[in-house]
């Protein structure tokens, strides 16, 4: 294991985030805070409690997930796309590093960044709404698993994309709608029955439901199912990444 390589990749990815602090951390935190103010405080005061939870608090887990997903994907995809784009990837390709080590460095850094963002958002949310976490270990588990799986997913997108358009395509056209329709702002049980069924095909529903359960013990689907779905997604991403590694996909001509 080339641990020095993993360390420098991780370190310089984190350093890059630190140097663009405003963009990396401040902007996702700010935009999520705006959601709290608009939805939680302004609108939430006129909405009844959902399943015994005030609306302002109810939307916190979903908003955290929204930020985590988009941040994990964009961090990881940019992290690997950029060296590909500028050509500096040649150095990583010619170095004595395995794909696993590259993955640990880039995905590890991307996941760490989104984890930090998630925690800052959580702390910020505490200013706007009274928050209590019923199952901290589960919450931390969902948080970490989500950061890792979606950073892996972002890494795959970053490897696959050969231009900026493709890089934005999936996050914009797939992830954002899935998150908004995934029950961030409502409980699935509030939808008409037909739509409830449709919703169950949205993987993000399981993520948000499970994460919300760890806060308030209310959920749309059972927490076990949520966890399984996250693990299935993680497994799928690992499989794709493994295949990319085997074939040298988009890296070695």
């Amino acid at each position: 294991m080339n641990t020095y390589a993993v360390r420098v990749i991780y370190k310089y990815e984190m350093l890059r985030a630190w140097e663009t602090l405003l963009q990396s951390f401040a902007s996702p935190v700010l935009s999520t805070s705006l959601y709290f103010v608009v939805f939680g405080s302004a609108i939430g005061s006129r909405i009844e409690q959902i399943e015994g939870v005030s609306y302002g608090a109810f939307i916190v887990p979903g908003l955290m997930m929204l930020a985590l997903l988009t941040q994990s994907i964009s961090n990881a995809s940019f992290g690997i796309f950029f060296p590909k784009f500028t050509g500096t990837i040649y150095e990583v390709m010619s170095a004595p590093v395995s794909f696993l080590e590259i993955l640990l460095g880039y995905v590890g850094a991307a996941a760490t960044k989104s984890l930090i963002i998630g925690l800052i958002i959580l702390a910020t949310a505490g200013f706007f709404v009274p928050l209590e976490v019923a199952h901290p270990v589960w919450m931390a588990g969902f948080l970490v698993l989500t950061c890792i799986s979606f950073s892996l997913f972002g890494f795959i997108i970053g490897l696959w994309a050969d231009n900026f358009e493709k890089l934005q395509l999936i996050p914009l056209l797939v992830i954002t709608p899935l998150v908004f329709l995934g029950g961030s702002f409502y409980s699935v049980s509030m939808l008409p029955p037909a739509w409830q069924t449709v919703t169950l095909f949205n993987p993000v529903v399981y993520l948000i439901s499970g994460f919300r359960w760890s806060f308030f013990e209310v959920s749309d689907v059972s927490v076990g199912l949520s966890l399984s779905m996250v693990l299935v997604f993680l497994g799928a991403c690992l499989l794709v990444v493994w295949w990319m590694f085997r074939t040298g996909y988009r890296l070695r001509q």
């Binding site: 080339n2 020095y4 390589a5 360390r7 420098v8 990749i9 370190k11 310089y12 350093l15 150095e91 990583v92 170095a95 004595p96 590093v97």
Partner: peptide, 14 residues
Amino acid sequence: WNTLSFSRGLFGKK
């Protein structure tokens, strides 16, 4: 300095 340190680490040197 950083880019040289990066390269050295990438190639497995302390």
